[in-house]
Amino acid sequence: MNNRFGTIVLDISFRVIIPFIMLYGVYVLIHGEDSPGGGFQAGALFGIAVVLSRLVHGEQAILNVSGDKALILAGIGTAIYGSVGVVTLLFGGNFLEYGTLPLNISEPGRHALGILAIELGVTICVMSTIVVIFDALVGREEE
């Protein structure tokens, strides 16, 4: 394994930092209800983690979400958001009316869960889009 950033210090530190970035992303995603944060920021963090891991590990990266799959994943992420709305439609509410989600908890609780679900969708979409753009810009596809 060669040193992709020139020196061993940078290489190792990036390797070490990746799990922490992901952890921070999870925190930002889940804590977005109570403090500044949310899906977009978490998605950006996850995206950076994936890109960084790819830079450090190359093809052997564990998080090798790449190319076409990332594009499909971005669509699925946004579709999760849309499908929350469709579920509320099916249960007799208006589009994105979280109060009608079929869950046995209080009204604000249902809203909060709905918000979490859509934030998850947003996170997936942002993460994969960053990977798609990165892939496209560095042009390492299908060669």
Binding site: G32, E33, G38, G85, E119, C125
Partner: peptide
């Protein structure tokens, strides 16, 4: 909405449809 963060409440609930559009913009 059960969210003490007003920005999140506006973004994801009151004006949640805007955010769907926004995610679509990214996509």
């Amino acid at each position: 909405t059960g969210s003490p963060n007003f920005v999140t409440a506006v973004l994801a609930d009151y004006r949640g449809y805007d955010t769907l559009g926004e995610t679509t913009v990214i996509f």
